[in-house]
Design a protein around this nucleic acid. Structure first.
Lengths: 196, 196
DNA sequence: CAGAATGTCTAGCAGTGCTAGAATCTGCTC
DNA sequence: GAGCAGATTCTAGCACTGCTAGACATTCTG
């Protein structure tokens, strides 16, 4: 009885992952408008209702993909920052911003789930996903701990790179100059070594 | 025959406006997900197919609302800039940014049509709506004409305020500090009077 | 092996965007 | 005014969407 339910729970978790992965892959291949419950069910070789026994509707599935995305993005930003030449100074900010835009450009479907599509992830609340907070903290960590406006700075930088990502993604500003924009932004916003 | 078709064209134009206005009002009142072709047709007291004789589907209607929005935004930004104390210097940029965020906050449905929802407006092409280009130019005009990076600066500023608008709109960053963010951004990005 | 519990599927609902073809109305000619 | 082309508008319906109730299998227990 115990062993049985353990196995069942394991199978359930596997299928959970299977569904999330299939949704992400389908979205990456054909865009989110192609991700219907029927096609998704088909792809995982189950009928529609099983999706609803795992997730709170379609939004729940999108939210799960988004949540994964926040974890991946957080890891990517952390790697970038820790690999940056000067972690406390100005260099790390540029590296993190580039990593951010890289993520948005190479994984547009996931990025869309995280920031554009309606999800039932709660923000600015107690149950805000840790990984999402972690993404933000990577920006914060690029500023001096004694900077009493580092949170505000991080919000501004995050807004800017997010804006660049979506405006470039929808062709409203040319994709080509993304690097220059980041460099310009970072040169103006990062902590100046001279400014104590 | 000529007078008749003229009147018809006038009626047609009136109805065109009626539909766009109704769509905008419905979206402002209940959100875009409540704007269905049936409800919209009901509201303008016509049947569904007349919508399709005026617009290229629902996306066409959203696009029309967005286009109106770009015109209004352009006008609002221009007024703000021309009313700013120091038009060529640093002050105008802050005024324009504030006006931008004001628009996004007070008219979220229109802003969503302009920047979030899928529309069939073409960007970065020859038939890019003039009013959209005009919005961008208002940001450009906040920088010195002899600044060879004013276009790039404008793109960065625009990205930043757009990012702030959507991140605050979806509760990812607190709405309350919006003013401080803009002020901080502007203080770092605007032309410095000293830098020739 | 019978019974209970768990899981899965079939079939269907109400709603969506969109459209073909019928019905109506309009302005013109006699 | 009567009748008639032509434009216009509507009714009815298609194929699809997300979602779910209730029938059907399957699996485990005693």
């Amino acid at each position: 009885m115990n062993a049985v339910s353990e196995r069942r729970e394991r199978e359930r978790a596997d299928r959970h992952r299977l569904i999330v992965t299939a949704a992400r892959e389908l979205a990456e291949a054909e865009g989110w408008e192609a991700v219907t419950t029927r096609r998704l069910a088909d792809r995982v070789e189950y009928s529609q209702p099983v999706l609803y026994s795992h997730f709170n509707g379609k939004n729940g599935i999108v939210s799960a993909v988004a949540l994964d995305g926040f974890e991946q993005l957080a890891a990517q930003l952390r790697d970038a920052r820790e690999g940056a030449p000067d972690q406390a100074g100005g260099k790390s900010l540029g590296t993190v911003c580039h990593a951010y835009l890289d993520f948005a450009r190479t994984r547009p479907a996931v990025y869309q789930a995280m920031f554009v599509l309606p999800t039932d992830l709660k923000f600015a609340s107690d149950e805000t996903p840790k990984s999402m907070r972690a993404c933000f903290d990577e920006f914060v960590a690029c500023f001096r701990p004694d900077d009493d406006r580092r949170e505000l700075s991080a919000e501004v930088v995050w807004s800017a790179v997010h804006g660049m990502a979506v405006l470039a993604g929808s062709g409203r500003i040319p994709q080509a100059l993304q690097e220059e924009r980041v460099d310009f932004l970072v040169s103006r916003l990062s902590d100046k070594p001279g400014t104590s």
